[in-house]
Design a protein around this nucleic acid. Structure first.
Length: 914
DNA sequence: GAGCACTGC
């Protein structure tokens, strides 16, 4: 690189200016910081492109704007919505929850009224069942559960109180027994007709599994006195005298239209210690309605740890503890593992580590204590003084597994908890490379939500004699996946969690220390069938300072959809309601979410739902995704949009088998056929899946999860049902041609993705380079899984994304390259500005486009009209009729504009990006 | 150049 000097004699290399030579130390840093600020400032003002419209096109637009029939559409539009007929929608603006509940209770108080005939027939049914051999056989097993011995006590406390807290550890039987005690008691007393138990579970799998288990215990099939209800899948039990297990979200959805749960006699909230947002929400709602539903019994079930918190939340509701039953699990800590394996950490002493406060306060005194008692060798104590000893060390884990396999005669399975994909694949590689785990003697399963092993039945099977099963898993094996024959657990002590940082408006994925609850749960996985062992890879001192629980979800999450849920439940301004939650969210996070909802036009400035907000709140998906499908309906390209919406909101269907990263990427590129959009890749994947004669083979070829693909297909159908209910479409088939006139217009589909995902935009100040800067010039990076990550040339300098998360750096997970006009049409804060005699359009203050004044004016007018149209359409939902009338005229015109990708030219000013 | 886990009449 050539070296030059500028006029001041400072050296210059290429475009890199060196700091003036008199600067020293910190001043040099400040010099660069200042230069960066200036460059970013300049880049912020740099136009992202030039918008050129031909005279003929301008005339064409003007003609449509001037046409009288076009103006007629808007004659009736009013932004006050007073013209709306009475509807749930309008009431949602006017009512508050208490009124709605009162009204509901007046109408439906008869629903759980006693029915003597029904009582009698339910009673007879019950008597008959009790004499069946199946039932008797099961009762013998049930009586062994700790919960069974407390049956009378449990029934008494429920009878005498409206709210009861029942705690108990795994294996105590509370989940399967309590609901049955209640039901059987009512049936026995010939009051079956007024018993309807609703029991929530935080996960779909557990709702089904528990329902199946309970039905079996009652010697029945599902759908008789026991059933379940989860999204897109239900086996409802009989109307009265029954128990329904459902996911928490289902109850919350039910409460949207029936907040008093008027047809429920007992609400059991299970696993509330997990503190998911929906459970927290229901807890707060129940507090509001319990006086109005004095006949409703509420049973809160949690783990023992921290259960008083829930009792306190309900004015010291009585609390009952059921002792747990699992086989004893011997616990070991890092010091024991080091002693046992003789493991020595690779010396890293050359790097001088600052000893943390944690280290000096807890670890060092602990090591000194160990030295005094001489239980552990000197070597162990030296190792414990290594400040990195509690970091995840896969070599240590490898040695420990080898040691367990050699010394422990029991052939029970080994379950290893690690934090993520990388560790899991590295450890499996290390294990196979070590030569100590020959395939004839060991079955090794990596277990991660992205790995295909998740869907293999084999991991649940007990291996043949002489074979040992080893599972290397994330926290998926803590609660979601249960493998019964585990006898040894190795717990790395860390867990990856996402936190939302309101300050940077960004999700952060980072490993943390587990909580005691996690550590106990992991340990418990070793004692399901016989006594077991658990090795924690942190010191006993660390164990003393672990938190009881991780932060509740509501303190870790973006709050947009939480706020919309509160709005649709008519809870008024969010702040006072949030204050009533068991833990209130961070005010900063609330502000960020309110801001976005207002920018999306989902909330008014005084925090009321707009018609758009109402629809977005009704849709079971993130508001940005909801907006996308509403636009998809209006522009008649629903099928691709539904596929993309489902994949973004639910789950990326691509799997990642260990060591197949390159192959997966290759197949993705093949599937995308040159289209530079992860979103259109989802569309293509689903289209191929739906059209394939052999869906399983298709999934196998392209590394897609068959199960996820089926779920995505179901989701699309469900989204359609919602749109149908809202009257945006006429029937609920996603492929309905009426909703898909423009399905193959991929530019339109991308424009609509932009309409939904805005303001998640990333840009490049120069055309051709990856658009990986926020509009305020912060650096982002395309996640390597994105098909744009290896792209060499970018034909536009703007992309939209849905998911962004910070781990090592800020990663964009999914992206579509888009042209300026969709941003100009669907972005907010449109402005015409003039600077130094040049005219621009600016969007949200920091996205600029060069554009002549006359073009800018005509775009503005069309944009305004479109927004009016949209407002009208959203507040008067009805399918768009495509056939040359006024509606179609404006939509076609806009469609032409936002999809015409060759009309912009880019600013060719020389530009310094380094 | 790298992806904790859930969920919605």
């Amino acid at each position: 690189m050539s070296s030059k000097r500028d006029r001041m004699g400072n050296r210059k290399e290429g475009n890199h200016e060196r700091p003036p030579s008199h600067l020293r130390g910190k001043q040099i840093g400040m010099y660069y910081a200042q230069r960066n600020r200036e460059r970013n400032e300049a880049n912020r003002k740099r136009p992202l492109g030039t918008i050129l419209l031909s005279e003929s096109r301008k005339n064409q637009i003007q003609a449509v704007l001037n046409s009288t029939s076009f103006k007629n559409i808007f004659a009736t539009t009013s932004s006050t919505y007073e013209h709306l007929e009475d509807s749930a929608f309008k009431r949602s603006f006017l009512r508050v929850i208490n009124e709605t509940i009162d009204e509901k209770l007046q109408h439906t108080c008869a629903r759980l009224a006693e029915d003597a005939t029904l009582n009698q027939s339910l009673y007879e049914d019950f008597l008959q069942k009790q004499s069946s051999p199946k039932y008797m056989n099961m009762i013998a097993k049930r009586t062994k559960l700790p919960a069974f011995n407390m049956k009378d006590e449990i029934l008494k406390v429920i009878d005498e109180n409206q709210v009861v807290v029942i705690s108990g550890e795994t294996g105590c039987g509370k989940t399967t027994q309590v609901a049955q005690f209640i039901l059987d008691d009512f049936l026995q007393k010939q009051k079956g007709s007024v018993c309807k138990v609703l029991c929530t579970q935080p996960r779909r799998i557990s709702a089904i599994a528990v329902a199946q288990r309970v039905a079996e215990e009652r010697g029945e099939e599902l759908g008789h006195s026991v059933g379940y209800h989860i999204r897109m899948e239900r086996r409802p039990p009989r109307d009265r005298g029954s128990i329904c297990f459902c996911t928490t979200g289902v109850v919350l959805k039910i409460m949207e239209s029936d907040a008093s749960l008027s047809w429920v006699s007992h609400l059991i909230l299970d696993e509330i210690h997990e503190r998911d947002v929906m459970s927290d929400f229901i807890l707060a709602l129940i507090k509001k309605i319990k006086a109005k539903r004095s006949d409703l019994k509420i049973i809160l079930m949690s783990a023992t740890l921290n259960s008083e918190k829930f009792s306190k939340y309900y004015d010291n509701a009585p609390h009952l503890n059921i002792p747990g039953f699992t086989y004893p699990v011997q616990e070991f800590y890092l010091e024991d593992v080091l002693q046992r394996t003789g493991f020595v950490f690779e010396s890293t002493h050359r790097i001088k580590h600052k000893k943390t406060k944690m280290y000096s306060d807890f670890i060092e005194p602990h090591v000194r204590q160990l030295e005094r008692t001489r239980q552990y060798s000197r070597q162990v104590c030296i190792q414990l003084r290594n400040p990195e000893c509690e970091d995840i060390n896969l070599e240590l884990i490898l040695q420990l597994v080898i040691d367990v396999c050699g010394k422990e005669r029991d052939e029970g399975a080994i379950l290893i908890f690690l934090t993520g994909f990388h560790e899991i694949s590295t450890l499996s590689r290390l294990m196979s490379e070590s030569g100590r785990f020959p395939p004839g003697k060991f079955l090794i399963f990596p277990l991660h939500s992205l790995m295909p092993t998740l869907e293999q039945k084999q991991i649940f099977d007990t291996p043949p004699r002489g074979m040992r099963k080893i599972i290397i898993a994330t926290n998926i094996a803590e609660t979601s996946i249960t493998i019964d024959d585990v006898v040894y657990v190795i717990d790395c002590g860390k867990i990856k969690v996402t936190n939302f940082d309101a300050r940077t408006n960004s999700d952060i994925l980072a490993p943390e220390w587990v909580s005691l609850a996690n550590a106990n749960q992991r340990r418990g996985r070793a004692g399901r069938v016989k006594p077991g062992m658990c090795f924690h890879l942190f010191t006993k001192a660390r164990n003393m300072v672990l938190e009881q629980y991780l932060l509740p979800e509501i303190l870790r999450k973006r709050l947009e959809d939480v706020i919309l849920t509160a709005k649709i439940l008519q809870l008024g301004p969010v702040e006072p309601f949030f204050a009533q939650l068991i833990d209130s969210p961070d005010p900063g996070a609330v502000t960020v979410a309110l801001e976005l909802l207002k920018r999306m036009n989902a909330l008014t400035d005084d925090e009321k739902l707009t018609p758009l907000g109402y629809h977005l709140a009704k849709l079971p998906m993130a508001p940005q995704i909801g907006k996308m499908i509403l636009f998809g309906a209006i522009f008649s390209c629903l099928d691709p949009i539904l596929s993309i919406a489902a994949a973004l909101d639910f789950k990326d269907p691509f799997q990642l088998p260990v060591d197949k990263e390159r192959e997966v990427y290759k197949m993705k590129l093949e599937l995308a056929r040159g289209v530079k959009s992860d979103h259109l890749l989802f569309h293509e994947a689903l289209r191929g899946f739906e059209e394939s004669g052999n869906a399983r083979q298709y999934c196998w070829n392209y590394f897609l999860s068959h199960q996820t693909m089926k779920q995505l297909q179901d989701l699309k159908k469900q989204y359609m049902e919602y749109l149908c209910e809202m009257n945006f479409v006429r029937d609920s088939d996603p492929k309905n041609p009426e909703c898909n006139l423009n399905w193959d217009n991929l530019s339109l589909v991308k424009a609509i993705i932009c309409a939904g995902l805005y303001p998640n935009i990333s840009i490049s100040p120069v055309l051709g380079k990856a658009p990986v800067r926020t509009p305020s010039m912060r650096r982002l990076k395309l996640h390597p899984k994105s098909i744009l990550a290896e792209c060499k040339y970018f034909d536009t300098n703007i992309l939209v994304y849905y998911k962004k998360m910070k781990s090592k750096v800020d990663f964009i997970y999914d992206a579509s390259l888009i042209h300026p006009l969709p941003v100009i049409f669907f972005g907010d804060r449109f402005n015409q500005i003039c600077e130094d005699g040049r005219s621009f359009i600016s969007i949200n203050q920091n996205l600029r486009f060069k554009c002549s004044e006359s073009t800018a004016s005509i775009i503005k007018e069309l944009r305004d009209r479109f927004n009016w149209f949209l407002e009208y359409k959203i507040s008067h939902p009805g399918p768009v009729v495509w056939g040359g009338d006024d509606e179609t005229q404006i939509l076609s015109l806009i469609m032409e504009l936002i999809t015409c990708e060759d009309m912009e030219e880019f600013d060719d000013d020389a530009f310094d990006d380094e």
